[in-house]
C-alpha cells in the first residue's frame, strides 16, 4: 500500500473501533426481528441459551474487532499466497 492507502486503511480501522467501542453503548437492547417473531409465535422457549466468553460491551467489541481483523488479514494472506503459487488462481 502507498502512504495514501495506509492512511485510508488506518482511518477505516479507527472508524470500526469507534463503532464497536463507543457507538455500541447506544445500541438498542430491544429484541431483534427474529427474537420478536419467535416471541410472538410462542417459540422463544425452544431457544437454547448459552453464555459467551465475551459480551457486546465496549471492551468485548474492541477484542472482537481485533480478532476478526487478525483472522481476516491472516486468511487473506493465505489465499493470496496460494493464488501466487497456482497459475489459475488469478
Amino acid at each position: 500500500m502507498s502512504g495514501h492507502g495506509r492512511r485510508w486503511w488506518a482511518l477505516g480501522v479507527l472508524v470500526t473501533l469507534l463503532v464497536a467501542g463507543v457507538l455500541s453503548r447506544f445500541a438498542s437492547t430491544a429484541p431483534d426481528g427474529l427474537e420478536r417473531v419467535a416471541a410472538d409465535q410462542g417459540i422463544s422457549g425452544q431457544a437454547v441459551e448459552r453464555s459467551g466468553l465475551l459480551s457486546y460491551d465496549g471492551l468485548g467489541g474492541v477484542v472482537g474487532v481485533a480478532l476478526v481483523l487478525a483472522v481476516g488479514l491472516g486468511l487473506t494472506a493465505v489465499l493470496r499466497r496460494r493464488s501466487a503459487r497456482s497459475p489459475r488462481g488469478r
Binding site: 477505516g12 463503532v19 457507538l23 467489541g61 476478526v68 481483523l69 481476516g72
Partner: peptide, 14 residues
C-alpha cells in the same frame, strides 16, 4: 479484512 471487521462492529449496533 477491514470489511469483515466493520461488519462485525456494525452488527453490534441494534
Amino acid at each position: 479484512g477491514l470489511v469483515a471487521t466493520f461488519v462485525f462492529a456494525a452488527q453490534m449496533i441494534n
